[in-house]
Amino acid sequence: MSMKEIEISIAAEPIFHIGSFPVTNTLLMSWIVMAILIVFALVVNRRLKLHPGKIQNAFEMVVEYIWDFMAEMLESKKLAKRFFPLIATLFLFIWVANMIEFTPGIGSVVIHEEGHSAAIPLLRSMNTDLNVTVALAIVAFLVIEVSGFLLLGFFKYGSKFINFGSPMKFFIGLIEMVSELGRLLSFSFRLFGNIFAGEVLIVVIAAFVPFFLPIPFMAFELFVGTIQAAIFALLTLSFIKIAITPVEHH
């Protein structure tokens, strides 16, 4: 067995085209994740009862825990209500994608294309595509900036970045601006890097010892997937908190 058998590609592979728009395997995967979430939401919504059963009770406890956590973090029930849908959706979307990562069929069902030597997997774990994580990072970034502008006021929030009060404040503002833009990079690379590295690790281990050994590593990757989904939502939340907190004057 040689290392040549290990096939790793950073870019997602297009499966078919709609017009000139390529549909990649990660895009198919994200549609599946959306379908799972929508179906789950519809089914659960229909079966909601005023007197909750055991399962509904458990879910209500989870929702309440996240709700209380957000209210404590943002120091406001109203703001928690406003941001809860976004933060919870970010978490659920990333988490479900990471949880179904190792479902049989994902990555193992392949199609062959003429003119292509390598087999192309029909489905591929969603977060191993930098496009997906960059899109999520842009969503988080825009929400952070817009909520800063809306809740703090245009000039008050803008003065965090462009401030002619003193040379010192001006330079601090520039640094703030760069670090704000750096978040785009760190948000997307953190998620992409963690999940992609996990996939590569599993592929390499499966090439050496195909049976049994990959299982504990897969379990670890599921743990990492949960942590990363939580981190993404948590960091968005805490950056929102930083953005809507007025600058202290000493």
Binding site: L185, S186, F189, R190, F192, G193, N194, F196, A197, I231, L234, L235
Partner: peptide
């Protein structure tokens, strides 16, 4: 998460 991101940059 913030610290680990640096290692992930290197990995990417």
């Amino acid at each position: 998460a913030l610290t680990e991101a640096l290692a992930i940059f290197a990995l990417v």
